[in-house]
Design a protein around this nucleic acid. Structure first.
Lengths: 102, 102
DNA sequence: CAAATAGCTTTGTGGCACAAAGCATATCGC
DNA sequence: GCGATATGCTTTGTGCCACAAAGCTATTTG
């Protein structure tokens, strides 16, 4: 018995959140509605997933008002960017040997 | 609301099983004890994970005897190999834009 | 022959993803 | 000005599942 595998950050690993993280990585910032549309997540699920990413310190939230309507804008923190890059590295490492021609 | 994300096969996506699948991909066949040693999974967890991979049709099991002791040998099915290759493709697609220098 | 080891399978449980319900404000129809 | 519908979320409820622990069968060892 060596050690259980924890090279893949579970917070990022969840498909919905992985999607959200990669989205935020490229667009830099996005509001709640945009993220919901892009991912197809219901408001409820999106809300809880974002809360989890917040708690992990991977995203920062800015709640303001656009006119009289609330507007919630998310962006990755430096920590979040680093964690995602590390996740990609771990995944590449894991899948590196998976070759279609094999 | 577009569609929820199901491009990543959940059976494979689970880290423990991803590890097992990639292992089997390269070694071609492996017995229970070897897999337990390599992954650090307890016998219980390994057993249930392998059962899940079996049910998905991704691994084939051969139970035989080495001398008088039982020996359980696993290998990927063609289906399993294809699914893993597809998983890698989906993951590459998802992470393609995650560039450390960005 | 009792105790330990090997090789698993089954059971129990906490955590979490997801859906549904709830809540607050805002605009629209009449 | 007042229901009805929409917008923008948060909270609640529940079923599933990964993981650990316990259990089970057979075999080897002192």
């Amino acid at each position: 018995m060596t050690r259980p595998d924890d090279s893949l950050d579970r917070v990022i690993h969840e498909p919905a959140r992985l999607r959200l993280m990669t989205l935020l990585f490229v667009v830099d910032e996005a509001d709640f509605t945009y993220l919901s549309n892009q991912t197809g997540l219901t408001a409820g699920n999106l809300s809880t997933h974002m809360a989890k990413l917040e708690n992990a310190g991977y995203v920062a939230v800015d709640k303001s008002f656009a006119g009289r309507r609330p507007r919630t804008v998310y962006r990755l923190t430096d920590n979040g960017r680093n964690a995602l890059v590390a996740y990609r590295a771990a995944m590449d490492d894991m899948l590196g040997r998976i070759d279609p021609s094999n």
